[in-house]
Structure formats: C-alpha cells, structure tokens
C-alpha cells in the first residue's frame, strides 16, 4: 500500500466509523474530535481489518500513544514495511 492509499483508507475509516469528515492530518484527535480510548480500540481493530492480519500486543500498545492521522499513517506504513520485510526474509 502506498502512503496515499493508506491516508485515503484511514480517512474512510474516520468517516465511516467515527463520522469525522476530512480530518486535518495533524489535528489532535482527542482535543479536536473527543477521540477516547474506546475509539482508539475501534480504530486498532479497523486497522487490523485493513491490513488483513492481527497485530501483536506490542504493536497495539504502540498504537495507543498515537494522537494524529499523520501518526496513524506512519504507524500503518511502518507495520506494513516490517511485515513485508519479515515475509521477504522467509
């Protein structure tokens, strides 16, 4: 997945699941949209669905510190790259 595709998918998730239209990439989700920890769990589960595999506990814990869409995209990009590298090594 390219960075643009990740951004598009994440924004789709926000529109579909959280009714947030066109969020700014660097908006603080908690302050701007009242995004709480239960929303963060929902987002994690949607990211798992998007990626097509289950995240590890450590990966999930990392995600709980995220505050902006931009950071979410970085996170998804990083996870995708790690999984691709691991798959390549095998």
């Amino acid at each position: 997945m390219t960075r643009q595709e990740i951004e598009r998918e994440i924004k789709n998730i926000f529109q579909r699941e959280f009714e947030v239209e066109n969020p700014g990439m660097d908006d603080n989700l908690r302050e701007e949209y009242g995004f709480d920890s239960i929303d963060a769990i929902e987002l994690l589960l949607e990211i798992e669905k998007l990626l097509g595999f289950e995240l590890t506990q450590e990966e999930k814990k990392l995600a709980m510190e995220i505050r902006t869409i931009s950071q979410i995209c970085d996170y998804v990009e990083k996870i995708t790259q790690i999984k691709a590298t691991l798959a390549g090594d095998k």
Partner: peptide, 12 residues
C-alpha cells in the same frame, strides 16, 4: 487503566 498500553493489558 483505560488509556494507552494499560488498556491493552486489561483487554488482553
């Protein structure tokens, strides 16, 4: 307990 990594620990 319901934020950050602690929440993941509780859910797991």
């Amino acid at each position: 307990e319901m934020l950050g990594p602690a929440m993941i620990n509780n859910l797991e």
